[in-house]
Design a protein around this nucleic acid. Structure first.
Lengths: 330, 330
DNA sequence: CGTGCGGCGTCAAACGTTTGACGTCAAGCG
DNA sequence: CGCTTGACGTCAAACGTTTGACGCCGCACG
């Protein structure tokens, strides 16, 4: 490869008539009291003229900091993780590079994946939606923040979605509307997020007249739609008037089934607030968990942790209930 | 930071009773004819026992190769890019790290962003959906592949979506169904992808009885739905019986508008095949561009380019038409 | 005039690898 | 026996920074 043309600090130094050290000091802003204003100018000029960019490997080697922030996530194709990623990217800026570590196969990661992240000598690591086993006994090797982690994990700073509030917002909204019979549909997942979504809502409506739940065996919205259509008539007969779903996709299935049944006046609420939810008819009431805000928050926290060495406090990103036509008094 | 406990090649060498060089040679598999099988064993044993991982910065510094594959993309929150990313991740494996470079603001990137990617000393770069100005006059500093790039850019190897085929598949499907009046809805974007989606379809149906087009001023599906609802009656009156949309989200808007209008028998086709499209009612016929396959392909090509030095040939990922209820004979 | 000091810079070691050049030793060959 | 050859390893330079330790110079102060 033709790599000899790369501009190094030496070229800049020659161009500015000074030593390599001086260049380094100026470039890193550690020149107070050691470099005259005039020399600083010359160096800066040379830097821009030659378009000098410090070799990151060399810098990392000596500082022991790769300037990399490493994000571990289950599945980039999932829009929620995409949101978080976008938020992280925005918060981090270009002082650091964003590295991605994905599960080698499938759509969920384990502790080995996290170790791969650590082996990159990252300045910081963000773990998005890790399962509980991922965190168990994990010894962080650098500032590490968990976004949307499982219930009890005080060991690491976290940015949490307010999954509990989600359940409360929904139940309050629905009971406020006069509903007394509830159905809940969600995957029978061991993922903590889904467990919490489920329990937060069910706990809150435990005293209602009727409560039905449907635990889906896997995460297949299409199959879910079929199952939903099968159980729904029974639910309605028994007095369910509001159906809450662990995900918008599931909500669409309910909407479809209701339409086919010709039933109206049944409230439907989803979670996740996919873009489509404002477009479908009826538009779907949903929870915006704030993935993007979570990403931004995690990015900021991590940066300040790296800079100041002060471990950030836990953050909870408020969930928002977006009320739409699917849960209006019919 | 407590970084003195890091295991280096020196520790391994001591442990195995040999020189650092030997360790390096063994670890990199360049030991044929220089290291005895027996020593190799000892080294390997020490490596696993001590859990030695070579310092990537040091390695990069001397080899000039960071082992990083850098992906530049407009917006991780967009599910299509997420798909590509997932494919890339799967193809690349863990021999390389995936770095992400995002636009500093907004949802589109420029050439400066790409230069940031190059300044990372990446082993390879993947440019996803770059605008034309991004590529103009760009001098690649390492193997670079363009995924879903603008029309004419022979300078760089590409993995193309078959946007043209998309238009053809759709028009053939619809004319086969007997349609003679067409409407097209898409953003009035300078993004080449959208231009091609538009022209590929319109060129193919140029001889039809009626052709209407709606160019949306920006990318706002909700506003689009309103505009669509406004123009649709006129279209239908003038003989449009099939509406094609540059995106599934737009298609949902059309579906909704038709429903509100009480009109039936109008075919609607979207592009992008979002997960919801199989769930909505009627399920939306759409084009699967194969983002994930494109990512995988790009990853493989790039890897082989890096390894063998042979510049890969251009690849075209076939588009698939997923026919659903929204475009069936009504 | 010596001494100290503050301002301005440079020196050179170190970071942890990789790799071409070079040893060493024993065996084989003429 | 001298020389080559091959098998097995090690040496040490180099990669491009960062940074603590030091030098130099001129001025103020005693």
């Amino acid at each position: 490869m033709l790599r000899k043309d790369r501009i190094g600090a030496r070229e800049v130094a020659e161009h500015a008539g000074c030593s390599v050290s001086a260049v380094s000091l100026v470039v890193n802003g550690k020149d107070s009291g050691r470099i005259s204003a005039e020399l600083r100018e010359r160096v800066l000029a040379a830097v821009t003229e030659l378009d000098y960019r410090p070799n990151r490997s060399a810098r990392s080697l000596v500082t022991g900091d790769s300037g990399t922030i490493c994000v571990v996530l289950p599945d980039p194709a999932n829009p929620f993780f995409g949101d978080v990623l976008a938020g992280l990217g925005a918060a981090i800026g270009d002082g650091h590079t964003l590295a991605l570590v994905l599960p080698t196969s499938g759509t969920d990661y384990d502790q080995r994946t996290v170790l791969r992240a650590y082996s990159l000598d990252s300045a910081g690591v963000v773990l998005i939606s890790p399962g509980e086993p991922v965190l168990r006994g994990l010894v962080p090797r650098c500032p590490t923040i968990v976004v949307d982690g499982p219930g009890r994990t005080p060991a690491l700073p976290r940015v949490d979605l307010d999954t509990v509030a989600a359940g409360e917002l929904i139940s309050d909204h629905l009971t406020g509307l006069g509903h007394r019979g509830f159905g809940y549909i969600g995957p029978k997942s061991d993922k903590p997020t889904f467990r919490t979504r489920r329990s937060a809502f069910l706990d809150r409506v435990a005293g209602a007249d009727v409560v039905r739940t449907l635990d889906l065996p896997d995460w297949d919205p299409l199959a879910a739609a079929v199952t939903t259509a099968a159980v729904l008539p029974g639910w309605l007969d028994s007095g369910v008037t509001a159906v809450v779903c662990a995900d918008d996709l599931l909500g669409y299935g309910v909407l479809t089934a209701l339409d086919r049944l010709g039933r109206t006046g049944i409230a439907v609420v989803g979670m996740g607030d996919l873009p489509f939810s404002q477009l479908c008819r009826p538009a779907l009431t949903s929870i915006d968990f704030g993935g993007r805000r979570a990403g931004e928050s995690a990015g900021r926290s991590l940066l300040s942790w790296i800079d100041t060495g002060e471990r950030p406090r836990r953050v909870r990103v408020p969930a928002k209930l977006i009320v739409r036509a699917s849960s209006e008094k019919g």
